[in-house]
Design a protein around this nucleic acid. Sequence first.
DNA 1: CTTGAGAGTGAGAATCATTTTCAGTAGAGT
DNA 2: ACTCTACTGAAAATGATTCTCACTCTCAAG
Lengths: 141, 141
Amino acid sequence: MASARRQESSYQGLALPARARLTPQRRAVLDAIEASSGRFTALELFQRARRASPQLGLATTYRTLELLRRTGSLHALSGDGRPAYVRCSPKHHHHLVCLSCGSVEDTELCATPSQRALSRQHGFRAESHELEIYGTCKRCL
Amino acid sequence: MASARRQESSYQGLALPARARLTPQRRAVLDAIEASSGRFTALELFQRARRASPQLGLATTYRTLELLRRTGSLHALSGDGRPAYVRCSPKHHHHLVCLSCGSVEDTELCATPSQRALSRQHGFRAESHELEIYGTCKRCL
DNA sequence: CTTGAGAGTGAGAATCATTTTCAGTAGAGT
DNA sequence: ACTCTACTGAAAATGATTCTCACTCTCAAG
């Protein structure tokens, strides 16, 4: 069989866009994400990845984060003012943010106002939505 | 009757915290918000407010935005990467963000996964939530 | 092999939004 | 008048992120 058009590549369960190469630097960043739990900042990730790949640059870390964000493997949080990232599944999902420990968990639970109500009350046509639920996680309860 | 403990002061429908003075500079910022529609950045607001109060400083604009945010008269948006503010009512509400013109509208329509489901599936106790709905507004349709 | 195109790179400069610092001002309560 | 304290503008500082640049790497074609 002839090889098909190039697809997304995947490593550590994280997807890179088609045509993007899995270089040693990116591998280091992806490993660092794999080793992280919950939310992390770009700088934390950079410092961690740099242990495995000491010549790694901060710009490359940001470039890699952006690639992952585009494939939906990563979500950028900014609700609380402090920027951070969390790994997430590319499927439709929302976030449970723990106010006590700051951890973020994905949930497939979902609810939105009906299109009917949006249309009638606002003349608005919805295409997508994001929901963040704040509270206390299992571990902190 | 003796005067009660000092309350929130309000101007242009925007509330300042108790103990905060309504100075000419703040009044200029509040007027500028009143004259704005939809979302605006801190810098845009500063420039507009400065027309009425030319000696106004940028720091004061930020300080005023922060006060309003604390009373719930203002909401800081950051979902799309670009920081911006929208005026909003202190009541519980969510946002309809138009992908075409960028306008933001409040809605009282609301829906979330049930506490029962959150608890059963994640052991999570919800306290609050934020919902942003993206789509097309009445004017752009 | 060359070679050429384009993706990828690190370092550091540049940008952008925001916050802090500081020395001085303005008002409300005495 | 006096004294708190909130408030102020200007400028410096900060923090996160993006951009620029000159260079390298990979890979497929000749």
